[in-house]
Write a protein that binds this DNA or RNA. Structure first.
Lengths: 159, 159
DNA sequence: TCAGTTAGTTCCAATTTAGAACCCATGGTG
DNA sequence: CACCATGGGTTCTAAATTGGAACTAACTGA
């Protein structure tokens, strides 16, 4: 299977990664959440080639994650802004950052701190069950296949 | 900048993605959380080439996310298990899955349902502030640079 | 007229991937 | 013994993608 065909798998993780799982794309999104909007700013901050950046921004725009908006006429110049679909990826970025802070930081500690404006404390993100309010870990979850895919996704020894 | 050098950036997201941000790697981890442990099972489920799978499993093992454990001798056979460092990536996978469920599902709906064993309800994951207990969205967060990187990471018009 | 800004596109060499075949240690079967 | 199967890879080649640099387009301001 080619990487470009993974969006046809019956798996929401695969379909998500078909849009944002490319090398560089999640770093583009990281910068979006830091307020970066313009081509050259992305290019300088990321150090990615202009060709690849152009391709990734196009895919994110086609995928509905970014909106390409003209911020001036004559000459027309565009900037890229997160849509609400894009903003909903924030938990993914935050958990990636927090995991990196915990396991991959160097002697200088975490580079950035995220402050929760409402309570003015450093954000310690948790995965949280809306129904019962408890914190959730991998072993607290049981996975079930929905009707149309019964028996087709999981292995029989699902642990 | 080459993709392979991004782990040298002062950014926890970049460092995380240096290990797990490659094409295919997050799909390998998805399967790990579904209980897959053996080379051929990964290979058949993902459809990735054996060469690439071998490379990704090696990088995940070297990165401390998977443990390569012999499950029999004569002939020696290994399986790959999540370490605690690896299990801590669960929130990333869950939020990717939930985002895909919400925005990318087809007519048959979400392929898998995650059930929270403690309360027996479908998991609706939320990003949650440990301190104040509130749900957190992107606009609720202010980002600050830590001492060593003052003025070097953010743009001046940080929004 | 000339330089500067912004957002790309084009070119080529180097790297990575897809797909298939092959390898190795061992175990089971006839 | 010969032969096939299993698990976990490695090797090979062609195709696709990336990195790096230069170039283009459409303006603005001096």
């Amino acid at each position: 299977m080619r990487w470009q065909d993974i969006d046809q798998q019956p798996c929401s993780v695969a379909r998500s990664l078909a849009i944002i799982g490319d090398n560089w794309t999640l770093l583009v999104l990281r910068d979006c959440f830091l307020g970066v909007r313009r081509f050259d700013d992305f290019q300088q901050r990321l150090g990615v080639t202009r060709h690849v950046l152009s391709d990734r921004l196009r895919k994110l725009t086609e995928g509905g994650i970014l909106d390409k908006v003209a911020y001036q006429q004559r000459p027309v110049r565009h900037e890229y802004r997160l849509t609400s679909m894009g903003r909903d990826l924030y938990p993914v970025i935050v958990h990636l950052a927090q995991w990196g802070d915990q396991y991959l930081a160097d002697d200088h500690g975490a580079p950035l701190t995220r402050i929760h404006k409402q309570c003015e404390h450093t954000l310690q993100a948790q995965l949280h069950c809306r129904h019962c309010g408890e914190t959730v870990a991998a072993q607290d979850i049981r996975v079930e296949e929905n009707a149309h895919w019964k028996g087709k996704i999981l292995m029989n020894n699902q642990g």
